[in-house]
Nucleic acid binder design. Structure first.
Lengths: 350, 350
DNA sequence: GCTCCGTGTCGAATCGGTTCGATCCAGACA
DNA sequence: TGTCTGGATCGAACCGATTCGACACGGAGC
């Protein structure tokens, strides 16, 4: 492998001069600079990342902690990851991907060994065990997902409260007075996925304000269980006219369930989901939905993280907690209630 | 940050002794070893990754090149990535994730700068521009996907020829004599996704052997286009009794299409797909399918790569090209033809 | 009593960069 | 003529590990 020493020799200068010629941190004569550049091109020199990291204490690598817990919804996770990865590269950083189950240990490992200049945490729980470790680390961190305590960290998330209110208001405006909300599996909530509560509580609150009956339930993350749950919910609330889905697997399962019951959307049932547009297009879901914008969140997190990395010596800027405002993407799956034939959801064939 | 010098001082030994005590590469007295270990624990010492990489020329990092091209099917990609990442960690390696559009440039960057000990390439095309760069690099590489020229590299892929034959044979055994095969978008083929041809050609060949009429077509990767294509195919081949899908988006769109046409599987139409079990469960697809096992492929690639990294000085083992045998997972979406009512596929409501 | 040997430890070199301080030199200025 | 200034370059130190060669010491063998 060709080193800066080889370049210096080829250009007939010292190693330090070659280094300054390349970095531009000191004035170097035009002539020498060109000789060095020529040598670099001829020899095909690329600085050794480890050596540079050792000398500068900068790795130009960002750690991305993505936990694939049970019931995790993979496609959404992937969109977060791509948002993070693409943005990082634009800003000159590479991504160290960590998918270890024991996120806390992994975080300690990559920060202590100084493999990364900063860290993005996905899937942050209410009381995330990784946070104390991140706060103690010398590198800055950015979160995607709102924990209970945001101190000392930059946090980005969708405004799930507002999402819940928008769903309810939209249905109310159309005339619906009884709705069903299907959330993520209870697992997710227990594990600290606070966003499930945030959406559900806000929806319940808003339903009360609007005078709407709102039935809530957890859905599974897999077929066939989630399909059964949807059937059961429609069975037990026959007068509900609208369905709110904060559960991607339920959204994916719904077309089949509707088919089995012979229901048509929005004539028989109005539906609003909460997932990304990308997801909707790929999986043929034509339900109106709250855009969850995972790529935008990943992008924002990295931007802020890099800003903090690169200004780490200046006086600390204040930490930010930023929410993306939800947007309802209308795909025509909602309408005024009552166009249904018989006033109750068709039974599924047993 | 605490260095090995701090540990050595705390233990009252030299830096080299501390290093040997930790690595065990020379005999060290029990007593000193314990003093060093205590110091490590007390001070919370973790070796600096950059310094270690510089000294040992080993980074313990594997590069993962995942290109997200247009029409790429994200969930499958994610499963590959997880297979690679989890296996790497088990073997002591971290993952540098590269999603840059210009894969060749990215590959050169990470190999030249010696950020990685080896590389896994996903999504390898027939005539992949990254391969010459990988061959010229000092680090070994493993491919997931079969290129035209496998020389000097370890290659892993599903046996798509066999997959095509299995699909056709299964349908033939049930009595089907006219089938439709929907492949990935033409984009993918033009870009060098040879596996599309491999499956299709083998299926055509086998259909000829069995005396089956096989209609082939490219499907899009998105709704609503892919749904329209499915409708058009069913319209123009009304006597076809079975559908083969080498296109995940088509599989995801099919339930809705069937619903719109009032078709039931397998009574009206037999269906076999080609995707992973994980995908099927998450997206509520109850079609029988050829398991594409992305996680297994990722795992195999990393295993082989690590073997090669760690034995790089010994005489080069021969390079391997290994195919996973496809397995048909029966989810009950195939049956003998002819249970259909009217002998043609119902029209969709216009 | 002397050499020989294995065990345990240390000092110094090395990996490949960056960066600080010093030096050299030419031109400006008093 | 001597001093000052600033541009251009070099040498050496440093980042934090690993590793090679040397060496001290105590016991075995002659």
């Amino acid at each position: 492998m060709v080193t800066i020493g080889d370049v210096a020799r080829a250009a007939g200068v010292s190693r330090s001069t070659a280094s300054y010629a390349l970095s531009g941190k000191r004035t170097i004569s035009m002539e020498v600079r060109e000789r060095v550049n020529d040598a670099v091109r001829e020899l095909g020199y690329t600085p050794n990342a480890g050596a540079r990291a050792l000398a500068t204490s900068q790795t130009m690598v960002i750690g991305l902690l993505a936990q694939f817990l049970e019931d995790e919804f993979a496609p959404a996770m992937l969109q977060y990851m791509l948002g993070v990865s693409d943005t990082a590269r634009e800003l000159g950083y590479d991504i160290l991907l960590v998918t270890e189950a024991d996120g806390a240990r992994a975080l300690r490992r990559i920060t202590d060994s100084q493999m990364v200049d900063g860290v993005v945490l996905l899937n942050v729980a209410q009381d995330d065990v990784r946070l104390p470790i991140l706060r103690a680390a010398p590198q800055p961190g950015a979160l995607v997902g709102l924990p209970g305590d945001c101190s000392g960290l930059d946090v980005f998330d969708l405004d799930f409260e507002e999402a819940g209110r928008i769903m309810v208001n939209h249905m109310h405006r159309l005339g619906h007075r009884e709705l069903i909300l299907v959330s993520q599996p209870e697992h997710v909530v227990e594990r600290g996925g606070a966003y499930v509560w945030r959406l559900q509580d806000a929806a319940l609150q808003q339903a009360r304000v609007r005078g709407i009956r709102l039935h809530t339930a957890f859905g599974e993350s897999r077929q066939p269980a989630v399909g059964r749950t949807l059937h059961a919910l429609l069975d037990s609330h026959p007068s509900a006219t609208g369905l709110l889905l904060n559960n991607e697997a339920a959204a994916a399962a719904l077309p089949t369930v509707l088919h089995e019951r012979g229901l048509t959307v929005p004539a028989d049932l109005s539906v609003i989901g909460r997932y990304s547009d990308e997801f909707a297009r790929t999986f043929s879901l034509s339900f109106s939905s709250i855009e969850s914008a995972p790529d935008r969140l990943g992008r924002m997190a990295v931007r802020q993280l890099v800003r903090r990395i690169e200004s780490s010596d200046t006086a600390a800027e204040p930490y930010v907690v930023r929410f993306i405002s939800p947007e309802l993407v209308d795909r025509g799956s909602t309408a005024a209630p009552g166009s249904r034939r018989d006033g109750s959801h068709s039974r599924r064939p047993q």
